[in-house]
């Protein structure tokens, strides 16, 4: 589903965020990516979503070589990915419902079908009662759940989250992780970048540990 092969990413200015990283994630797998801040978790996230391009190596998503995609093909790659951003990227000038409707605007669903899907996604994350509220009126945990509802409204095969539990209290964080687990249980490939080691320890899942841009440890290859 997702494959990195000898991937390096050097930013303009010379900072090397990823060094020779290789791994492969099968369809339906749940994977944590961990490491200190600056270890390369966000860069990994950005390479999968084609927000950044690898300096060398190949990134495969759904069998497509992301680095070789024409710019016009990138939107269609992203539509098959559910992205949960570290800063959530909610639009604060519109309601909760309209935020979830956003990815449906450029899909081919009719208005009624789109609204139905948006409500289903809001229901899934427990925010259906707040569809008329504005994101500003939501708590941190609720905002994060709204971001997840928006990510899954197109029913993507892959869900990728960058630090989805940062700045959340333990209860809210656990609820967010439970949501991701429930999507994984219905067959969605889930990749969660987090620096929260305790959270990882509570869930038995494959873990990729990054350190200073290199893949330090892959729990799927044993060693623990």
């Amino acid at each position: 589903m997702i494959g990195f092969s000898k991937v390096s990413k050097r930013y303009p200015g010379g900072f090397e965020a990823l060094k020779d990283v290789s791994f492969s994630i099968a369809a339906g797998e749940l994977t944590f990516v961990t490491g200190h801040s600056g270890a390369g978790k966000s860069t990994l996230f950005k390479l999968i979503a084609a927000i950044e391009r690898a300096t060398s190596g190949t990134v495969l998503v759904n069998g497509q070589n992301v680095g070789a995609l024409r710019p016009a093909a990138i939107p269609f790659l992203r539509r098959n990915l559910g992205l949960v951003f570290q800063d959530q990227k909610l639009l604060y000038d519109r309601s909760v419902f309209d935020n979830v409707m956003l990815p449906l605007a450029f899909s081919d669903f009719s208005g009624r079908e789109a609204a139905r899907r948006a409500r289903a996604a809001l229901d899934k994350v427990g925010l259906l009662a707040r569809e008329r509220a504005h994101p500003m009126q939501l708590s941190g945990g609720e905002q994060q759940r709204l971001a997840i509802a928006r990510a899954v409204v197109n029913r993507p095969a892959v869900l990728i989250a960058d630090e989805p539990t940062a700045n959340l209290d333990a209860g809210s964080a656990e609820r967010i992780i439970a949501l991701f687990l429930s999507f994984n249980q219905v067959g969605v490939t889930v990749l969660i970048a987090t620096h929260d080691e305790q959270l990882i320890a509570r869930h038995a899942a494959r873990t990729l540990r990054l350190a200073a841009g290199g893949l330090e440890h892959d729990s799927a290859e044993g060693g623990e």
Partner: peptide
């Protein structure tokens, strides 16, 4: 911001 976000969510140019 809206343009940025819609682009990240898969909107075509």
């Amino acid at each position: 911001q809206e343009i940025e976000v819609t682009k990240l969510l898969g909107a075509t140019d």
